[in-house]
């Protein structure tokens, strides 16, 4: 073979070899084709464990019950029992150690999520007692009159 063909060919082959050697060291050992085949299961196994180790923030009402059983008991008498504590009190994380205090969402917007009246047929929203936010004491925080743990009108402050 003539030199002017052979030389560049060797360079190209050499480069391919270098890329392959680099790849051998760069690609993690657990990166390969898995259960779901090459098309959908071509990944680094360690990433599944990384996602499993992601931090849980919302602990659920059962977690709150251990210390705040009285609060849970009082709210369970009301239609608001279906609402998770953390929806208003914020994610518990490691409370009471971290954070020591949870920030409570007492905003008007939080109540209006359900109680802004929307008469939507074929949606559960229509059957929730609601108000027109522009007419009903606009600008006032709902919690200054209503008690979210005892929302019936007898519970008015």
């Amino acid at each position: 073979m003539k030199n002017h063909v052979f030389r560049p060919l060797m360079v190209v082959l050499g480069l391919i070899g270098l890329v392959l050697i680099f790849r051998l060291f760069y690609v993690p050992k657990d990166f390969s084709s898995h259960e779901n085949g090459y098309m959908y299961g071509w990944y680094r196994t360690g990433n599944i464990e990384e996602w499993k180790a992601f931090k849980v923030k919302y602990q659920g009402a059962e977690y709150c019950k251990d210390c705040h059983a009285d609060k849970l008991e009082s709210i369970s008498q009301s239609p608001h029992m279906i609402i998770q504590c953390e929806n208003c009190h914020g994610p518990a994380f490691e409370h009471p150690s971290d954070p020591e205090k949870l920030p409570i969402d007492r905003s008007r917007g939080q109540c209006l999520r359900c109680h802004a009246k929307l008469a939507y047929p074929s949606s559960g929203r229509a059957s929730i007692r609601g108000i027109d936010p522009e007419q009903h004491n606009a600008g006032t925080e709902c919690v200054s009159c209503h008690n979210p743990h005892k929302p019936s009108l007898e519970g008015l402050k």
Binding site: I83, Q84, C114, S123, I128
Partner: peptide
């Protein structure tokens, strides 16, 4: 059942 409260999105 969905009433559009968006508490799912917040959480």
């Amino acid at each position: 059942k969905c009433v559009g409260c968006g508490l799912c999105v917040k959480a």
